[in-house]
Amino acid sequence: MTQTSLSGTTGNTAGVVPAVQIAGVTKDFGSVHAVRGIDLTLDQGEIVAFLGPNGAGKTTTIDMVLGLSHPTTGSVEVLGLQPRQAIARGLVSAVMQTGGLLKDLTVRETVAYTASLFADAAPVDQVLRTAGIESIAERKVGKCSGGEQQRLRFAMALLSDPALLLLDEPTTGMDVEGRRAFWSAIRADAEKGRTVLFATHYLEEADQYADRIVLISHGRIVADGTGSQIKALAAGRTVRATLPDPDPQRLSGLAGVDSVDVRGDTVYIHAKDTDDVARYLLTETRAQDLEITARGLEDAFLSLTGDDQDITPAPADQGVSA
């Protein structure tokens, strides 16, 4: 198990308390090790994507940041405070995908109810207007569409002007236009110092909107860097060829080759410049049936987070024959 450490992850600016500081955190549920050791620091104003498949430990980690559960070992601090203390000051909000609403309250009552719990909250009418739900303020929550309920959840989350906002798959079900508007609003708030951590399993969205992507798998962080750094992991192409008695050492020595994988008569060569590899194979060896495939972001993602824990780019069979 390796963590891909990418250079240039944001260092902590001196004197400013980090938005989130997770140190040596593990979380066990009985014999299940949901989180196996995470260290993560988020600076104020960062937009960070928390990327990983279901069951990777994303939700468990977010629950600990929200103070909904406690780490088995290690510590979690939000703006230098215990999570519960940060929440008591209205510094942390979260928007979940489903639930969290009472159907028999009106939209206005839901916002007023939530606002009354904070020491300082924006005026209810203003919040309704900003969220674009002023016209449905008197409607029962149960009669609102999924989109309207999601706007309501956002309105509730922004009431206390949180310094840290956690989002779970925030743009699911939004159209392209809605998604763009959503992210430009998030971006504007981040410039005022709000930190946003969003969970997703779409690399595309993470790459497009996050300053930083944290890839989590099997309860550990497997990569942490900017979108382009993560994409660099997926750079290059793979050459597959049928080659009896290959010489792996010789193949590895070719210019630009990252890795060589020999499976019987078949070789998989991952390289930045596959043209040279192909030329060599066809002219200098008895290689046949050449296939050259690009490795997409999704493949990189899968190889980093999948059960195959080896992050050296040794593609699985499906990856090459596709």
């Binding site: 929200l66 103070g67 929440i87 008591a88 000051r89 209205g90 979260a94 969290g100 719990l117 206390s160």
Partner: peptide
């Protein structure tokens, strides 16, 4: 809803 309330003071 209780979970939602746990995210408030």
């Amino acid at each position: 809803w209780s979970r939602q309330l746990r995210l408030t003071p």
